[in-house]
Simulated assay, not measured.
Amino acid sequence: MGFFGFLLLGLIAGAIAKLIIPGRQGGGWLITLVLGVVGALLGGWIGGLIFGGGLQEFFSIRTWLLAIGGSVVVLLIYGAITGRKSRT
């Protein structure tokens, strides 16, 4: 997967992670991109450790699930560090 494909994957995965996490998270599209890319890296690394392969192809369901799962984890950590309270 190329550099721009990875950025697009991170942006979309970060946006989906923000939709999954209840409450209101701060940050604009730049924070979403950064958290999504970091989450995709984390998801690919964890997927490599557990399943023996990380992020492979852009249109692979496994790639998307790993990237979104990693983004959710990173978003939860970001919320805990910045001290944002979720509103339900």
Score class of each variant (00 low, 15 high):
V37K: 07
W45Q: 13
I31H: 09
A67G: 05
K85P: 01
L8A: 06
P22Y: 05
I46A: 07
F51V: 13
G5F: 04
I50A: 07
I21W: 08
A40V: 14
V34W: 14
Q56T: 15
V38N: 02
G14T: 01
G47R: 05
K18W: 09
G44S: 05
P22N: 00
G39R: 14
S60D: 10
I68N: 06
G27C: 07
G2W: 10
L76H: 05
E57Q: 13
G10K: 08
T63Q: 00
L66P: 02
F6L: 08
G69R: 15
I68D: 00
G43S: 04
I77D: 02
L35Y: 10
G70E: 02
T32P: 11
G44M: 01
V74A: 04
E57K: 15
K85Y: 00
W29N: 14
Q56C: 03
V73H: 03
G43Y: 11
I50F: 11
E57F: 12
L49Y: 11
G53F: 15
L9Y: 02
G44H: 02
W64K: 06
G26L: 11
F4Q: 04
I16E: 08
G44F: 02
G48D: 15
G53I: 15
G83Y: 00
P22I: 06
F6S: 03
S86I: 01
F4S: 07
L55P: 11
T32M: 11
F3T: 14
L30I: 10
A17W: 03
A40L: 05
V74S: 01
G79R: 13
L11E: 00
I81W: 05
L42C: 07
G69Q: 13
I16Q: 03
L41P: 00
L55W: 08
G54Q: 01
A40P: 01
A15F: 10
I50V: 15
L41H: 01
